[in-house]
Amino acid sequence: MTASPGNFADRPAPQEFDVGTSTHDLLSELLRSVRLSGDRIVAYAPPPTFSIGFADTGTLHIVEEGELEIRIDGDAEAKRVGPGDVVLLPRGDRHVVTDAGTTAATRWLCGRFTIGDARASHLLESLPAAIVLHGMGGPALEGLDVARRMIVIEMRSPSQGSAVMVARILDLIFIQILRVWAAGADTEPNWLVGAVDPHTGPALSAIHRDPGRDWTVEELARVCNLSRSAFAERFAAHVGKPPATYLGQVRLGAAADLLRNTSLPVALIAKRVGYMSEAAFSRAFKNRYDTPPAQWRRGVSLT
């Protein structure tokens, strides 16, 4: 005999996700602040022998058929990719896509990204020139395959809103590639690796939300519910530098943003980003950008 529920009106509590207040989501915070935007998508199906150059913008290649070779300026070894592989060049490095020396038909999608805020430069420069994910059949890449098919549908049968749909899907692909790459076992230490780690991500989020605060290693460790020594060791292992070094870089990036986009005096900017004196700030800024802050500001205003 099956027992009847005491109240048929009882329902499981609905799951909610607040896109504005997700805790310790540094990647979302940063992507919102730098205004990533998928720009356009192009389908390439060139003749058997070809060479196509790309430069100066974030680029995504999704191989659908055949094999490609991607040669990045400054990299002696070409990257060979095949069907189902995706290649993200987040920094916009100059590169050339060529045939792989076979006569087989080649077909791939190429997406382009624009960054609406120069603050992204520090973050993007620390990423590899190219992130390569091989094959889209595994669970981690299932979302990429769905996104790819959605783009193909929009390209083949464009309708009202297709341009925005494609741009948003490109954004999703960019984010998913970064997440999958950062979670990889062999990924080099990086801010993104630290951001996706639950034991260091809260500290990174705290630093970016309030870089001007007088953070100590002890305070950041408490944010992550770790001892000072355990936190410092884990942070360096995942991010690739000590917490104080990373904090200094974030402060200088925030200062550059204020110099570029406001008319605040240098002394006030120094105070806002956590420096006790203008002189100390100017020294640190020059060490990072090779130019004193006031001179750097004048140069940016002329560009």
Rank of each mutant, 00 (worst) to 15 (best):
P139E: 01
W108K: 06
I62T: 12
A236R: 14
V223D: 01
A45V: 11
I151M: 04
I72P: 03
M1Q: 09
D197H: 14
D257S: 13
T23R: 15
E218P: 15
R32C: 15
A13H: 14
R119I: 05
A9W: 09
L36S: 02
E218Y: 09
F174G: 01
L109V: 06
A221K: 02
W108D: 00
G84P: 06
S263F: 08
T106M: 05
A185K: 09
L36C: 04
L252T: 00
T303A: 12
H122T: 13
R209G: 10
P202L: 02
A237K: 12
A140V: 08
D186K: 07
S4L: 13
D25N: 15
S121W: 09
R94Q: 04
A3Y: 09
E67F: 10
A254L: 01
T114L: 10
V196I: 12
L302K: 12
L36I: 06
I62R: 10
M150Q: 12
L258V: 02
L192M: 08
A182M: 03
T106H: 05
P242K: 08
Y44G: 05
W181F: 05
F285W: 00
D171R: 08
R168V: 10
L36K: 02
A267I: 10
R260E: 07
F174A: 03
S157F: 11
E16R: 15
L204K: 03
D197V: 13
R297D: 00
A279S: 15
A147W: 08
R298T: 08
E64A: 13
F113G: 01
D85E: 05
P242G: 09
I52W: 10
M1G: 15
F281Y: 03
S159H: 13
L133K: 04
V86R: 06
D210F: 07
R168M: 08
C110D: 04
A118L: 11
G38L: 02
S159D: 11
L259F: 02
G84F: 06
A294M: 03
A237M: 10
T98W: 00
F50H: 07
V81Q: 01
T21H: 14
N261M: 06
V34P: 00
T187S: 05
A147N: 11
L144D: 00
V132S: 05
A256I: 01
L259S: 01
R272I: 02
R107N: 04
A3G: 14
Q176M: 08
K79L: 14
S162P: 15
Q295V: 14
S126A: 14
A256K: 01
V164S: 11
R213Y: 07
S301K: 10
D25K: 11
A3D: 15
G20M: 13
Q160E: 14
R156D: 06
R222G: 07
P243A: 04
L252C: 02
S51L: 07
L302D: 10
A76L: 09
R179T: 13
I169Y: 00
L88F: 02
A267H: 09
G240N: 03
A43Y: 07
L68R: 07
T2Y: 10
S51G: 12
V217P: 14
S33G: 15
